[in-house]
């Protein structure tokens, strides 16, 4: 019973979706304020979701209908499942086993993968290009992002999110000892969520809405909800690992919102990178830097 409740209501399910929407709203509002605009009102993401759910879902010609309908569900389900292993809102994770960090990271990738496949599933030219870009980008940030999350795992000597969080809570903030890892994790999160400047896969002035161009109604709503959930999980992970753990709801809110404002600021101040520039940036700088730090950590651990 409690397992189903955890999955559907709290801390997963409905609660998580709502938190995702609130965080999305805060992000939009912050970017708007940085741009001297009013920004949306607090219920806007909820209103958008309800509107999309109520709308007709157009199935374009030439797509595999089963895939077309299941991909958004898989994408959202992946993100929701990942939430079970993460200490959301300062509570302990619902489930935990040694090695759940790896499972979580790959569950999070399901959303991107789902988006890419959804784009490749349709015949729309913008979707195809969007899908190519989504997957290209996935391959560029995924490795550095994973390495950045493994840094704390190495020093905590555990691949279990709960234990790493405890370790981070007991020691100096890892932000201080592993600054490169923190930066790469934060920027990797932006890449994962396709936020500017890494929004080439959905650059509206070039390819309309990228991989999701043909999606409308429910499918689009599910993808959007998935994004919101992933935002919360990503922020939680970074805050838990690098900002000294999240053991209390208030501490959680404070730390994740601080991270979110940095994200919003970066979004506002940056110009969109072309996809070749994104890939170049990640492999030339992101991956190498974090790898160097990673090696240093291993050596350091070995010496100690």
């Amino acid at each position: 019973m409690s397992a189903i409740a955890a999955l559907l209501i709290f801390p997963g399910g409905v609660f998580l979706l709502l938190v995702g929407m609130i965080y999305e709203w805060i992000d939009r509002k912050l970017v708007a304020r940085f741009q001297n605009r009013m920004g949306p009102r607090w219920f806007q993401p909820l209103a958008d979701t309800i509107k999309l759910l109520a709308k007709e879902e157009v199935v374009p010609d030439g797509v595999d209908a089963r895939l077309f309908f299941t991909l958004p569900v898989i994408a959202l389900a992946g993100a929701m499942t990942a939430a079970l292993y993460v200490p959301l809102v300062g509570f302990e994770a619902s489930y935990s086993f040694s090695g759940d960090l790896i499972v979580t990271v790959y569950m999070l990738s399901l959303l991107t993968l789902g988006t890419g496949l959804a784009g490749a599933n349709t015949l729309n030219r913008f979707s195809l290009i969007g899908a190519t870009r989504t997957l290209t980008q996935l391959f560029s940030y995924e490795a550095p992002f994973l390495l950045a999350l493994l840094g704390p795992a190495i020093v905590a000597d555990s691949w279990q999110i709960g234990e790493i969080t405890d370790y981070a809570g007991d020691h100096v903030w890892l932000l201080v000892t592993q600054p490169i890892g923190f930066l790469v994790a934060l920027i990797g999160l932006m890449g994962k969520l396709e936020l500017p400047p890494f929004d080439a896969p959905e650059a509206e002035t070039e390819i309309v809405a990228g991989a999701l161009t043909e999606y409308s109604g429910r499918g689009l709503a599910l993808f959007h909800l998935g994004k919101g959930v992933e935002l919360v999980i990503g922020l939680t992970l970074v805050a838990a690992f690098y900002l000294g753990g999240v053991t209390h709801p208030l501490i959680f809110v404070a730390k994740t919102l601080a991270l979110l404002s940095i994200l919003a600021g970066l979004q506002a101040l940056m110009t969109r990178l072309r996809i070749d520039q994104t890939v170049g940036l990640w492999w030339r700088y992101g991956a190498l830097l974090v790898l160097a730090q990673f090696l240093a950590l291993i050596v350091w651990e070995g010496v100690m």
Binding site: F34, P196, D199, A203, T205, A268, L269, M270, T271, R272
Partner: peptide, 8 residues
């Protein structure tokens, strides 16, 4: 600027 993705 918008075309370049620099909405600021």
């Amino acid at each position: 600027a918008h075309e370049a993705g620099f909405d600021m």
